[in-house]
């Protein structure tokens, strides 16, 4: 297992990938923030921000099918979180479902929240599609992410799939010894396997860190293809932030 399937479009040359990672993260945050904080019922500004996000996807040359496939799971999470809104808001009942009723204001808020969440997901998809994990970390470090968290994430990136594989290997070993029969047995087996993985993850973390220090690690992971700021990239990013801010302010004023 690895992260590589996530980074397939990270090195496709485009106006988006020419912006350094810190700028990409800032642009994504600006678009997500502008979308998430649109006032209730501001459908035209929401449409404009959606159009802007889709345009950026096209500019970055991320295929629509890939974007849609990546949207599916987060969208399911958003749907699961917002469905309860249908019945939680008091008001005139539209449909009765046993003890609960879908209300008109509930349906209205559900539609608004779903639409905002869906549009805000597009820039996030764009960021993850155009930025590899080391680049992302480098960008976050540039945006003043504490060094402790950045180092932890860098190490976690190296250790994550090893840890997952370790969990699977230990489970396979336990099962081959007939451990984990029934729900209680399986729970005990999994707890034992998880505890063993925790111990091994700590030991591996320290070993890896020692090896990194021996190779001259100073606290930041070097990048193989560092993107530097160009005038064009800065202008593009500024344009994007100004556009998002304008739509947000217009939606609030009128």
């Amino acid at each position: 297992m690895s992260f590589h399937h996530l980074d397939r479009f990270a090195h496709v040359p485009s106006p988006v990938t020419r912006v350094p990672p810190a700028g990409r993260i800032a642009g994504t945050a600006a678009l997500a923030l502008a979308t998430a904080t649109l006032p209730h019922g501001a459908w035209v500004p929401l449409g404009l921000l959606a159009l802007l996000s889709v345009l950026l996807l096209a500019l970055a040359r991320v295929p629509l099918t890939v974007a849609l496939a990546r949207l599916a799971w987060p969208l399911a999470l958003v749907l699961a979180a917002s469905t309860a809104l249908l019945v939680m808001v008091p008001g005139e009942p539209l449909v009765r479902l046993g003890p609960v009723a879908v209300t008109a204001p509930g349906a209205d808020r559900f539609a608004t929240v779903m639409a905002r969440a869906m549009v805000a997901l597009v820039p996030a998809i764009l960021l993850v599609s155009t930025t590899s994990f080391p680049e992302l970390l480098h960008g976050l470090r540039g945006l003043r992410l504490p060094a402790a968290v950045a180092t932890a994430l860098g190490l976690a990136y190296r250790l994550l799939y090893l840890t997952v594989d370790e969990l699977e290997r230990l489970q396979r070993a336990a099962r081959s010894r007939n451990a984990g029969h029934g729900a209680a047995g399986r729970r005990h087996m999994l707890i034992g396997v998880t505890a063993a993985t925790l111990g091994r993850a700590f030991a591996r973390g320290e070993r890896t860190h020692d090896a990194m220090l021996a190779r001259g690690f100073t606290g930041t992971l070097p990048l193989l293809h560092a993107t530097t700021w160009s005038v064009a990239a800065a202008v593009h990013l500024a344009l994007l932030v100004i556009l998002a801010a304008t739509v947000s302010v217009m939606a609030r004023l009128g």
Binding site: A148, V149, A152, L153, G154, L155, H209, G219
Partner: peptide
Amino acid sequence: GPVLGATT
């Protein structure tokens, strides 16, 4: 570094 990374 190693402790936080491994725990994450």
